[in-house]
Structures are given as structure tokens and as C-alpha cells.
């Protein structure tokens, strides 16, 4: 296949994965969230400052699909917080060149938070630094580093970004 056609196809797969992802975490109950990842995936949330200084710790630091599943289970069954939801706006992915069946991608995002008694607040902005694996007609996340632009997190961070 022509390399450009293949590249366009990969971009389209990543865009579609992104669209499904955001629909699941904003309008679903997040239980299908781990399915967007491969089994030995990595997911972390950090800040631009930490990322620039190569500081490893994350607000969330998960290195298996099971840990992603546990995160949702805990949020639904164990943790206590006021009812709230997030609304993500994800930008167009900037997709790198395919290396074998894997590819790097970046996308910016804005997240609004809607809390029970409160208005809609701008909760976070940042970018996803991703690596996807392409299998058939599906792009799955191998690694997602969520880099928040600000180092400040209001109140608490619950559901996935």
C-alpha cells in the first residue's frame, strides 16, 4: 500500500479511537475505559513542569490494564466525592510515522468539570503524549502520558482524563 495512504488510514484510526474514548469517559460510566489500552499498557497523569524536569511520579501511575480497571472499580465502589463529571474537548491528533505496528501521537485537550452544586468550570488543559499499536482496523493505546499545563489541581482528580 502507498505509504501516504497507510499514514492517512492510521491517522483516521487514531481519530476514531479518540472519539470513542471521549464518548466512553464523558458519557459512559468509564468501565470500558481500559479496553482502549493494550494489556501491558502504561498510563500516567503529570504536569508540564514535572514532565520538563523528567520527574517520574504521577498523580496517577498505572502500568497494566488491570490497574486501569482497578482505578475505575475504586472510583465507583470505594472512593467518596461529590457527584461530578468531566467534559473533554480533544484536538486533532498529531500523528508521527508508523514504526512497525506502533506510532506516536499527540493531542491537546481541555476538560471542563461539572459539580453537583457548582457551575461548569474549566478544570484542566494539557496534551496527551501517546503511543498507539495498530492491529487490524483498531488503534489501541500502548502508553498515554497526560501532561497537564498547570501544576495546580482543583480539589481532587477522580475519573480519567
Amino acid at each position: 500500500m502507498n505509504i501516504h495512504v497507510r499514514q492517512a488510514e492510521v491517522s483516521a484510526l487514531i481519530s476514531a479511537a479518540q472519539a470513542r474514548y471521549v464518548r466512553e469517559i464523558d458519557d459512559g460510566d468509564c468501565t470500558a475505559w481500559p479496553n482502549f489500552f493494550v494489556d501491558d499498557c502504561f498510563y500516567t497523569i503529570t504536569s508540564a513542569d514535572n514532565y520538563a524536569q523528567n520527574l517520574e511520579a504521577g498523580l496517577v501511575w498505572l502500568d497494566s490494564k488491570d490497574m486501569l480497571r482497578d482505578r475505575i472499580l475504586s472510583l465507583l465502589e470505594a472512593n467518596v466525592y461529590e457527584r461530578h463529571s468531566y467534559r473533554h474537548m480533544i484536538g486533532q491528533p498529531f500523528v508521527g510515522e508508523l514504526e512497525g505496528d506502533e506510532v506516536d501521537s499527540e493531542a491537546s485537550f481541555m476538560v471542563a468539570r461539572i459539580t453537583r452544586e457548582g457551575p461548569t468550570d474549566l478544570f484542566a488543559t494539557g496534551r496527551y503524549i501517546d503511543r498507539y499499536r495498530i492491529a487490524g482496523d483498531e488503534a489501541k493505546i500502548v502508553s498515554r502520558t497526560v501532561v497537564l499545563d498547570s501544576n495546580q489541581i482543583d480539589t481532587l482528580l477522580g475519573f480519567p482524563l
Binding site: 504536569s47 520527574l55 517520574e56
Partner: peptide, 10 residues
């Protein structure tokens, strides 16, 4: 230092 985060509490 492994990381730094600022939590804004209301």
C-alpha cells in the same frame, strides 16, 4: 524529588 503537585483546596 520524584514529583511535585499543587492541590488547590476550597
Amino acid at each position: 524529588v520524584l514529583g511535585r503537585f499543587t492541590q488547590v483546596l476550597p
